[in-house]
Simulated scan of single mutants.
Amino acid sequence: MVTGVSSGVFQRAGVRLHHRVWGEGPPVVLVHGLSGSGRWWRRNVPALQRRHTVYVLDLSGYGAARRQRALGVREAAALISDWLEDTDLRGVSLVGHSMGGHICVHVAARCPDRLDNLVLVCASGLLSTSAYRVALQLPRALITGRKRFVPRILTDALRAGPLNLWRNARDLLRDSVQDLLPLIRARTLVIWGERDALVPVELGAVLAHSIPGARFEVIPRAGHVVMVDAPAAFNAALLAFLEAVPADGEVLT
């Protein structure tokens, strides 16, 4: 079990953003998805913290912030952007999973000068379907992922509560990031699980193609929670991207 070396709470307009911090070095910010929590990154933090300061967020309505109402993707992006400004974090590598990736696209659009890298992991933002149809895919998503992680998924979902989950599901399906993608200035990696049953890998390819200079990587035999299903492959791909020397002409902030 990974234990954070420090923790904090940022508050704005009565809404709180919880975070835990590990390591030292250039900042990496991890943003979980719908029904998740910061615990979903526990297989990734040890690899990252060796060379980076890792900030693991709990979004309003989830994890340590579960007693609050969930924010819409744009509201959550505004809160994270305010936190980045308040802490004066610069040269940030922003990593978001699923709904968290959706939120991170909005953060990248709001404060491009604070981001060096953007990593979108099985991100929503281009889904065009109904909350009902997404719900129908949940059983398949559970069986295509790591079975030992199912209790954590169910526990975090129960803690968030059905009302928060429903509100966020409806909100993210109504919000498209298509128009923002060509404007992203950060170096971008789009990473997907080959067996993602919730956000099809084909949407990952479209997402990457729509962002200038973005790289697209698919992890074999992994499902929607790719950083849990294949942590070694995910960590290797993420670290290789974060620590690579940018090539001539690569998009930078």
Rank of each mutant, 00 (worst) to 15 (best):
L163H: 08
H32M: 00
A205I: 11
L34R: 10
L207W: 03
R215D: 07
I191P: 05
D179E: 15
G33V: 01
M227L: 05
R152W: 11
L238P: 07
A109R: 09
L242P: 02
G145E: 07
P151G: 01
R43S: 07
A232N: 10
L172C: 05
S81G: 10
L189W: 05
V150E: 09
L183E: 15
I103W: 02
E85N: 12
A244G: 13
V206Q: 14
A222V: 09
L203K: 15
L183P: 11
G61R: 10
T144P: 06
K147T: 10
L71I: 08
C122F: 09
R221V: 13
D156Y: 08
V31H: 15
V150L: 05
D196A: 10
R69M: 13
V190M: 10
A109C: 08
L30A: 04
S6V: 14
F149N: 15
R159D: 12
L163T: 06
A247P: 04
L242V: 00
A47M: 06
V28T: 00
L126Y: 03
A13F: 12
D86Q: 09
R185I: 07
R74L: 13
H52Y: 00
M1K: 08
G23M: 14
R51S: 09
T144F: 07
E217H: 06
P46W: 13
R170P: 07
R152D: 13
F234D: 06
H209N: 13
V107N: 01
I211R: 02
T144W: 07
G223V: 11
A237M: 08
A157R: 01
V29G: 03
C122Y: 07
A247T: 06
D171S: 07
F234E: 06
N44G: 01
R110W: 09
S130Y: 03
M1G: 04
V226A: 15
D179R: 13
V5L: 12
G161M: 00
A131P: 06
G72R: 09
E250P: 07
I103S: 03
R51W: 11
D196N: 11
F234W: 02
F149T: 05
R187H: 03
R215Y: 13
N164L: 10
V177T: 06
